[in-house]
Design a protein around this nucleic acid. Structure first.
Length: 644
RNA sequence: GGGCGCGUAGCUCAGUUGGAUAGAGCAUCAGCCUUCUAAGCUGAGGGUCGCAGGUUCGAUCCCUGCCGCGCCUACCA
């Protein structure tokens, strides 16, 4: 209800200023620093002061005297050097909240595609991947809460170097046959097996540079799709994708479609893109210098500060296409600009019934579904790849797809690194140089990092100990369910509380914490609100009991009014978090709302309240807190446990 | 060298298109459980918003320079 009121205020004020002063300005509406100043503040007099050459205070006085009354606003007053503070009609706002909110109209203008996770299918997921997936999944939930139609893609690079390296490890180092790898897959934690093998082969390459020929041979075999190496490649990639999907589903993260690189190759997506790029002269065949024989994109196309000679290779001199080239083709497909589509097969159905599809190269038995063709595309990729993302967008621009280029958004975030202390705790030896750093980069090649499943397990263990000691009467299954919910709440909140361009220096103590600004703190609020409602028994008919007169009387109490205001701000928080593209803002709102509830819980014994009207009002407020906490947590992908 | 980002309390971080007394969590110290769950609440101490200029009625925020740190700058993905 607050957003409607806000836009009413803004339009009324800007209209008045236009008529009165003949000036058109963007009216800003702020939240005053102190609650006692009112609910909203207009700094508009400061904005006008320069144009009108008049003291801000005088303008504010005029405005307050002359502004027409606005529905829902009770008083206007001048404060400070020229602020106009607004006080709302309290009962009106509360009553508006009492009646069911109008359903937000769905934005019917096309599909938004969010691509996230994108883990190389060659080893277990680690904390860096968790940040990507949690950020992406939360942003998807935010978009959907805002009424957008969203398609979630998880790109699988199943033919790349990283998969090849693990295949090399199995084939050349371990001399493993496909049958033996099959057995390893059937055994437990294949992704952990590959984690170690990947570190082993990376070290082996270092010690024996000649062995890099194995990688080249394997890559070639995987690309051709023939022979034992290719079979091993398929086995490894498919099995690891299963592992990743399981890990992510533990955190409530789902996908709609898994487009795979192997199909981009087999269905010749690149050939179509290549034709378009050549035709539009977006790339050219270099004839001299170090890139002679390559198809390159001139540097000036993706970075105006670059020289043209500082170009990016798209097709190598041996005729193979680089990753960026394939990415341009893939990005074109996302917008429906390629004139081609994958075929699809069901990959799995989540326990809640949601299906996810995987791309295939063959029309045989293809599922009657289609993906891609989005209006707007968000690529959740860490900031280290911004250079490559720029090249992809430049490709679209060079092809004259300016609208799509503008709608290609690199949803970037900084990496998750390890604090030196976390490294020590894991028994990882650090150089003196690394010890002095604020953080150490996670490295799959070195096997340095915290595996996602290990962290989740650790969190569940630690939550379970706490849950069990507090709830000895509950069954083991019930305790485990709650501990899982808390572990996920802690993990997701931890990954979301930092803004995107902050490097997270992972620290066990912080990540394992359940107190202070954490997911469980917010969950605790929701659980306690639920407990009050449960203990209260049958709830009164709020709409009947809470008349305008009753609301007006009770809301004279400043404290109660602030709580009503607090629970009314969810939409506002969602809108601003979406505008800023910062899931961290949504997380922060969740925490603030929970803090408000903790204060309310402390200040107002709801059940014991003897004034019947007030008791009903407090119960209603409690229900509002519970609903808004649950909804906000839902947007963060965090559930409310049955008890704590 | 160039590009991007960061520098705010002892630590980890927020800070809403420039606005009122710069906030939170952790840590420290002092209090609050016979009351809807203390995973909580209250209070205290703790700040030259990296440094120096500039723009402005007003700068943590915008501009310039400097210092420090990180990432990127592959015919790897």
């Amino acid at each position: 209800m607050l957003p409607q009121l806000e836009s009413r205020i803004v339009s009324a004020v800007s209209q008045h200023i236009l008529i009165r002063y003949g000036v058109e300005i963007a009216v800003a509406l702020e939240q005053p620093r102190q609650a006692s100043f009112g609910e909203f503040a207009l700094p508009v007099a400061f904005q006008l002061a320069r144009q009108l050459k008049k003291a801000p205070r005088a303008i504010a006085d005029e405005l307050v005297a002359e502004l027409p009354s606005i529905d829902g606003v009770k008083t206007l007053e001048v404060a400070g050097g020229g602020y106009i503070n607004l006080r709302l009609d309290r009962a009106a706002l509360a009553l508006a909240a009492l009646s069911p909110a109008p359903v937000a109209a769905a934005a019917g203008d096309g599909k938004v595609i969010v691509e996230h996770t994108n883990i190389n299918p060659n080893k277990a997921a680690h904390i860096g991947h968790l940040r990507n997936a949690i950020l992406g999944d939360t942003f998807v939930r935010m978009l959907r809460a805002g009424g957008q139609r969203v398609e979630v893609q998880n790109y699988i690079d199943n033919t790349g170097v990283q998969v090849a390296d693990v295949v090399v490890g199995f084939h050349y180092l371990d001399k493993a046959t496909p049958a033996q790898v099959h057995a390893l897959i059937a055994a437990d934690k294949f992704d952990y097996t590959c984690w170690d093998l990947y570190a082993k082969i990376s070290q082996y390459y270092k010690d024996n540079p000649d062995s890099l020929q194995w990688r080249r041979d394997t890559l070639h075999a995987i690309e051709s799709g023939e022979g034992e190496l290719a079979e091993l490649g398929r086995l490894v990639a498919d099995a690891i994708v299963e592992c990743h999907m399981n890990t992510m589903w533990r955190l409530g993260i789902q996908y709609d479609v898994l487009p795979r690189e192997s199909e981009i190759l087999h269905l010749k997506f690149w050939a179509s893109a290549f034709e378009q790029l050549k035709e539009r002269k977006a790339i050219y065949l270099e004839t001299e210098g170090k890139n002679s024989g390559c198809w390159v994109m001139p540097g000036s196309a993706f970075d105006e500060n670059r020289e043209d000679e500082d170009s990016k290779v798209i097709v190598r001199s041996n005729g193979t296409v680089t990753y960026v080239g394939k990415d341009i083709a893939y990005q074109m497909w996302k917008f429906g600009l390629l004139g081609k589509d994958f075929y699809y097969q069901p990959f799995r159905t989540y326990s809640d019934g949601h299906p996810v599809f995987v791309s295939t190269a063959s029309p045989d038995n293809a599922a009657p579904v289609s993906f891609g063709g989005g209006r707007k595309v968000y690529n959740v990729i860490d900031s280290r790849q911004s250079y490559l993302q720029d090249v992809v967008v430049a490709g679209l621009k060079a092809l004259n797809y300016h609208e799509q280029a503008a709608n290609s958004i690199h949803f970037s975030y900084e990496m998750v690194a390890m604090s030196p202390r976390a490294c020590v705790e894991m028994g990882i030896e650090l150089s003196a140089e690394d010890q002095a750093r604020p953080y150490v980069e996670v490295s799959g090649r070195k096997g340095l990092g915290v595996k996602a499943d290990d962290l989740i397990d650790k969190l569940i263990d630690s939550a379970l100990a706490e849950v069990a000691s507090r709830n000895e009467d509950k069954s083991g299954d019930e305790q485990f369910a709650v501990a899982s919910a808390l572990a996920i709440g802690a993990l997701r909140y931890f990954m979301l509380k930092f803004t995107r361009n902050t490097v997270i220096a992972f620290d066990f103590q912080e990540a394992l914490s359940f107190t202070g600004e954490t997911g469980p703190y917010v969950q605790y609020g929701a659980v306690r609100a639920g407990k009050i409602l449960q203990k209260a028994g049958d709830l009164p008919d709020f709409a009947a009991v809470l008349t305008p007169a009753v609301c007006a009387r009770l809301l004279e109490e400043e404290g109660l009014w602030q709580y009503v205001l607090a629970v009314s701000r969810t939409d506002q928080a969602l809108t601003s978090a979406l505008t800023a593209g910062e899931p961290a803002h949504m997380a922060r709102y969740a925490f603030q709302l929970a803090q408000q509830f903790a204060n309310f819980y402390h200040d107002y014994p709801v059940i014991q309240e003897t004034d019947a009207d007030k008791r009903a009002f407090l119960l209603w407020l409690t229900a509002q807190f519970r609903a808004q906490l649950e909804r906000t947590l839902g947007i963060l992908g965090i559930t409310v446990p049955a008890f704590m």
